[in-house]
């Protein structure tokens, strides 16, 4: 454990930028905060919950996987030398769960090559970032337990900095980081954790909903209701840190040459399961919404959920962004009340 004065953070990030492509929260002119290349002028710690998880660093919205040339498929493999500074604990858990799926049985080489190269620096949350956070219910936050290189605890004038990996230890070996008595650090962190966890609302409906899905007692009316409201934008899946479904398409760029590209896809779309014959085993929007939520809360067996509860890591983004209020929070509430 080390300690860093708050005022030194921009200099530290600047130093790290010499060796890594540092991505950190950046305040844009429009008032939105996004993860962007570190810039001392726009860098901010007032970023709450980033609007998107860092999923696209591991599974880009769209990526070329093969170049088609001279009758061959030539692998296009991008590594990553990025540092992500300021990840939230729920997103770290989301990344770990998604990784366990992408690397189970057969390894997805594109996902793995990016994930391995990225340095993950977490900023532990001192409380909920907004009213939709429910990390404590699903066991993903407000601080990360594993899967990061460094974790920062914001104590006001200073940060306590915890290293999880060898790479992390080396990062905090320089002069900016001071030593701190282990017992003292332990007490402060314990206090921080207890306080932060207490500040975040538990959502008992989630466990009830999981229970009801397991015993098959959820009425189809719940899904019909949401199915009628959904406008099929796919947003809930695109902002979700644990959604990894993709499609693959070929493009011809000129005669004999082209690209094979994979891009995000979502179980909310009718075409996702429509077969060539026209038959669609998930033929209604109600069935598709049921699938999405069953996958998060019932059928997550193919994913190692690690210390988490289920395939949802409680970031609340689906509730933040669904234009017609069909987030996991709304759905579990409807199931529990059904």
């Amino acid at each position: 454990m080390k300690v860093l004065a708050r005022k030194d953070l921009p200099d530290v990030l600047k130093n790290w930028s010499d060796s890594y492509d540092v991505f950190a929260p950046s305040m844009k002119e429009t008032g939105d905060v996004i993860f962007d290349r570190f810039d001392a002028d726009t860098f901010t710690l007032e970023y709450g919950k980033p609007s998107l998880p860092q999923k696209s660093e591991f599974l880009p919205q769209s990526e070329v996987i093969f170049e088609l040339k001279k009758g061959e498929y030539r692998e296009v493999m991008a590594g990553s030398g990025k540092m992500l500074f300021g990840m939230r604990a729920c997103d770290v858990m989301g990344m770990r769960q998604a990784g366990s799926f992408m690397k189970r049985d057969v390894t997805d080489p594109y996902y793995k090559s990016k994930e391995e190269g990225i340095l993950k620096v977490v900023m532990a949350c001192s409380g909920p970032q907004n009213e939709t956070c429910f990390c404590t219910t699903v066991g993903s936050g407000p601080f990360a337990e594993a899967g990061f290189d460094l974790q920062f605890y914001d104590l006001g004038d200073e940060f306590l900095v915890e290293a999880e990996s060898e790479r992390g230890k080396q990062l905090i070996a320089d002069g900016f980081f001071g030593e701190i008595d282990a017992a003292e650090a332990g007490t402060k962190i314990e206090e921080f954790k207890v306080h932060a966890s207490k500040a975040i609302k538990e959502v008992p409906a989630l466990k009830e909903a999981m229970e009801r899905l397991r015993d098959g007692s959820v009425s189809e009316k719940v899904w019909d209701y949401f199915g009628r409201k959904c406008i099929v934008c796919g947003g809930c899946a695109f902002v979700c840190p644990t959604c990894t479904c993709f499609t693959v398409s070929d493009f011809q760029t000129q005669p004999g040459e082209g690209l094979r590209v994979r891009s995000w896809d979502a179980c909310l779309f009718g075409g996702f399961t429509r077969e060539a014959s026209g038959h669609n085993p998930r033929g209604t929007q109600a069935l598709r919404l049921k699938r999405r939520h069953e996958h998060k809360l019932l059928y997550y067996n193919e994913t190692d959920v690690l210390e988490g509860l289920c395939g949802c890591v409680g970031c609340g983004r689906c509730s933040d962004y669904c234009p017609v209020h069909i987030g996991t929070l709304e759905v579990v509430k409807a199931i529990a009340e059904d």
Binding site: F101, M102, R104, D105, V106, D108, T244, C245, F246, T247, V248, D265, C267, F272, T273, R274, E275, P281, R291, E294, H295, L298, Y299, N301, E302
Partner: peptide, 24 residues
């Protein structure tokens, strides 16, 4: 069984049937 499939190796998610993947 037949399902829409993209990857064939249990990653793309298209062929899911409950807690199973039709491709694997």
């Amino acid at each position: 069984l037949e399902r829409m499939m993209k990857c064939g190796i249990g990653k793309c998610g298209h062929c899911a049937i409950g807690d199973k993947y039709c491709c694997t």
